[in-house]
Design a binder for these strands. Structure first.
Lengths: 214, 214
DNA sequence: TTGTTGAGTGAGTAATCACTCATTTTTTGG
DNA sequence: CCAAAAAATGAGTGATTACTCACTCAACAA
């Protein structure tokens, strides 16, 4: 995963990339500016020309994730997959999203890990995360949800937020289970498990009680 | 949330409680042993009589969560609620679990935050987490799942792991959304939203396509 | 009383931290 | 080609870190 913001010098990119690598490995507090500098191939002083404080590096990573990735991950990606790729029915739409998002998460995992960790501890980071990514994602999904409800493919009684969260939630835990706890579990076949996850998202884990609408 | 393991001196308990508080506030690396000592009301040297290194304090917290809380949180609680409290039908069973677990998560959130954060970065912590808590939770839920499938209340096609994960996933994101991002969102009515979450878990977010079994 | 023990202490230690700044190197404009 | 400006450097700074250890002192036994 490369950083590639527009107004950014070569050195700044190198520093940010190195920072993402080091911080994602050891956590923000345990990552030292000296190691980031070494990893980036610059002097320690150079870091502080581009980022006034260490915390500003973190903000830089957040902004980067917000600006570049969110655009790719949320707006462009979701819209394209949900609306324009010939997935008319809900199931293949969701399956497309999940598979695509799964690969995405893999690619941006270092950055995500940093942001998620820091968001758990600092309200200001949470606020940026919400403004830059979550609110936009909710917006896009709400549009999709409205459309699906109109088509009679999704339940109107369940709000967009809850529905979207259900998809995200299952996706995240699926990822965590496989990628973080994978080594200590004998894993099921990937596609089979993903199909079950989609079933759970779409139709739930309970037996359908009856067929007449309540 | 008090620590209360059996073989533990008064001082050790105080240190562990203080450590949970401080580490949960600032994260493991940013938490200093000097502050933990101050918070516990002991000398800094005393800490190292009970815990050889700072990382041993973390292990102490993990063990504490594993031994004392996991029993309460997962095994005892789940079994009681799922099997013995007159919730014969699936819906009220799940609702009971969710509400109960929600309050629990609130209570042990400081400890959970520490463990989750460190588990994201360290395989050894993840291994302990899996052995002490996750594997046990999976075991208990699998038993419940089998019973529910036999009764015709839960789908047999969806594995216990996927089903359990779906419940946990929705629960976790519901909690995160409300407790971490709550301040920056105008929140829906709690019970109404919880009902929707349960609906999503039980019957999914898609419209049921047809009524004949495939 | 005297001697022994061990929990508890807190000043001390070397290492490391984020950050600064005087200096050097590179780039730029005429 | 040169001087001015900008960028990059890395030794240096005070603060802080996890951890040590010589010590205190209350409790108990002889």
């Amino acid at each position: 995963m490369q950083t590639a913001d527009l107004k950014m010098s070569e050195k700044e990119k190198k520093i940010l990339d190195a920072a993402i690598g080091v911080i994602s490995e050891k956590g923000f507090s345990a990552a030292s500016t000296s190691e980031i500098a070494r990893q980036a191939g610059v002097a320690e002083g150079t870091i502080f020309r581009y980022f006034k404080t260490k915390k500003d590096i973190l903000r830089g990573i957040l902004m980067h994730l917000g600006n570049v990735i969110a655009e790719l991950l949320v707006v462009y990606g979701l819209k394209k997959i949900l609306f324009h790729e010939g997935h008319e029915d809900l199931r293949s739409g969701i399956k497309g999203v999940l598979k695509d998002r799964m690969a995405m998460i893999d690619a941006v995992f270092p950055m995500l890990r940093i942001v998620i960790t820091e968001a758990m501890y600092h309200e200001d980071i949470r606020q940026i995360l919400y403004d830059k990514i979550i609110s936009r994602a909710v917006e896009v999904f709400a549009e999709y949800h409205r459309e699906m409800v109109d088509k009679g493919l999704m339940k109107g009684e369940i709000d967009a937020v809850v529905a979207g969260r259900s998809i995200l939630a299952n996706l995240v835990l699926f990822f965590v289970y496989r990628n973080l706890f994978g080594p200590m579990i004998e894993l099921d076949d990937y596609d089979r498990e993903l199909d079950q996850v989609i079933d759970a998202i779409m139709h739930g884990i309970a037996m359908p009680e009856n067929c007449d609408k309540k």
